[in-house]
């Protein structure tokens, strides 16, 4: 049968990383009243983690094999 490519494993790994990043308990770590440059850390964390996930997706999925 077809053997999954390395790319496929990377994609699935990235998906699992995403599930971890945007879930309890990681979210709870940032769910505190503190702020970074005036912005609540939870908001900063969410958008940064989101951006990183997207960037990784671009590299993994569109990058060369």
């Amino acid at each position: 049968m077809r053997k999954p490519s390395l790319r496929a494993y990377r994609i699935v790994s990235l998906f699992l990383l995403g599930c971890l990043l945007f879930n309890y308990p990681v979210l709870a770590l940032f769910n505190v009243g503190a702020t970074a440059a005036g912005v609540p850390v939870l908001y900063v964390y969410l958008f940064v983690a989101w951006g990183v996930t997207i960037a990784l997706a671009a590299v993994v999925i569109e990058g060369g094999t």
Binding site: A8, I11, V12, L14, F15, G18, C19, F22, L42, Y43, L46, W50, T53, I54, A57, I61
Partner: peptide, 20 residues
């Protein structure tokens, strides 16, 4: 607050699996 965000983060995760 951030309660609206899962609606847009979910698709991000799903698009990763979209390749499959």
């Amino acid at each position: 607050g951030v309660g609206f965000l899962p609606i847009y983060i979910g698709p991000t995760l799903m698009m990763l699996l979209g390749w499959f």
